[in-house]
Design a protein around this nucleic acid. Sequence first.
DNA 1: AAGACTGTACCGTCCGGTCGGTTTAGGTTT
DNA 2: AAACCTAAACCGACCGGACGGTACAGTCTT
Lengths: 184, 184
Amino acid sequence: MSERKHPAGSRNASPRILGAARAVAGREGVGKITIEAVAKEAGLSKGGVLYNYPTKKALLSGLLDQMLAKHRELLGKVPERHPSRTLHGHLETILHSEDLDDDLSTAILAVAASDPRLLDPLRTELTGDLERILSGTQDAPGAMVAVLAIQGLRFQKLLNLPDGGADLREPIIERLRTMIDGLD
Amino acid sequence: MSERKHPAGSRNASPRILGAARAVAGREGVGKITIEAVAKEAGLSKGGVLYNYPTKKALLSGLLDQMLAKHRELLGKVPERHPSRTLHGHLETILHSEDLDDDLSTAILAVAASDPRLLDPLRTELTGDLERILSGTQDAPGAMVAVLAIQGLRFQKLLNLPDGGADLREPIIERLRTMIDGLD
DNA sequence: AAGACTGTACCGTCCGGTCGGTTTAGGTTT
DNA sequence: AAACCTAAACCGACCGGACGGTACAGTCTT
């Protein structure tokens, strides 16, 4: 019901639209994600955006979907037999998005602000990840602390909260890595 | 520019207004924080709300202020000479709000969604806390990981993200406590 | 009387969503 | 290959409702 072929005049603007939404959110805040603003940013008309995403909620869900897809993609890149593979993936997801300025976590805020229910896909995804993480370790609390720290890292970045200085960034990540490695 | 005296005919509805705002946010999502909705929830008229908070931004800032005040109050309760006192305070702040269902951190989301700049007070507060925390420990990365985990805990609760099951809650907190105690 | 509201009416703006077009690109017919 | 058809993709004017804020006359409390 989604994968749509585009046999005729088609440039499939969806990705451009999502990118535009992220750009707007990053520049002016999540509250400024407006269909018109997104349209303008994407070089489209309002109708064009609404054609791809019939409602604003659909647009926001699309944003979240994109984020989750990216998340899964990065998870897939973690070496197969790595112990606590999922945990490592979570960490790398954030580090990776540190280089690119595509703040995908923006979607979380945007979605949560409009309708908390839209976060359900994120919740189920996370639930699955947690199960995988916890079933792969003896030290459940330790794993959870790592998960929480990673989550904290994400929101710290998202809200531009202080991070203790640039010279601490690397040591923190290094510490997290060793914490995770020491889990098994 | 805020602290207002109420020397005469005064019931000072401000706290009730803030509580109402949190209630609305908790029930319907941060996006539904409307002056009218808050007024209705507080058993006030729209004019009454605007009398206490002349603009919506003022209302949101008030929410954040309340949160920070509560935060400071709880920090003050931590035993004086406790090593890594601030860190413990942060943790207790969350645990304490676990009993009460007044999700003060809602303010963060609400504020962030409307105008990221309004988060500045939170940022400066956190910066101060971080300085205190880091200056009181030899193991800066370890302390930061603890801070991050606490932050993660806050957002997990705030967004109703999965937590690995109820039987893990206590062990996680216990682990965090020992982590913090083992720092200095 | 003055402060702390209530209640209602109202304004202007913003924004989500609708809707009737218009353009673009491929296929079909002749 | 020119003419024609079809449908996807998109445009943009418009509507209606929500919402922030104003104004202001009245009410209750201290």
